[in-house]
Amino acid sequence: MDIKKVKETALGGLLNNPVFVLVLGMCPTIGMSTNVTNALGLGLATAFVLVFSNVFVSLLRKVIPDKVRLPSYIIIIATFVTLVQLFLVKFLPSLNASIGRFIPLIVVNCIILGRAEAFASKNGAGYAALDGLSMGLGFTCSLVLLGAVRMALIAAGFGIFETAAGGFITLGLMMALFNYVLGLYRNHAKAKLLKGGSSL
């Protein structure tokens, strides 16, 4: 097992955060970040689909011909999205009433297809699962953080943050802050590396 690769993959959700760095999955991010509960629900649903679709894509990577890889990935992703929807309808109907409209959109969420194409199709099932978990939790945390900030601003009386415009403003500011902090970390890590220490 390559420890460095495991570390890189595990930290992928933070250092290559799908929302704040890669800017993927913007539709559910803006739509479902008005409320922490909905954000958490959708984030965890996306994480579940990401982990299992990554694993299956990875297991079938040597079998799926190049020409039909995207349709194959979509079928696999759609299967897990449907499983999530069936689960929500049966066990969490109130959450389904809030976020049900966004669940089918997970199929075309760029994060899922992007990670299947960029990572899962080129790595083993273990790494693919770890990448799915890392990215999924990264997405969930971003959504929840955004949701908490928007909820606080709405509660403070700034109604604009309930709208999509307010969502974009919040997202943009948080993205700037996140990337600034990430830049500081990377510079620090680079400086440490130049001094002879190890980074990442």
């Binding site: 020409k67 079928i75 449907t82």
Partner: peptide
């Protein structure tokens, strides 16, 4: 034929699972 077969098998397995 390989493409059609692989896609078909994946679809059938997914439908069965669902």
């Amino acid at each position: 034929l390989k493409c059609v077969l692989v896609l078909g098998i994946i679809a059938v397995v997914c439908v069965a699972l669902l």
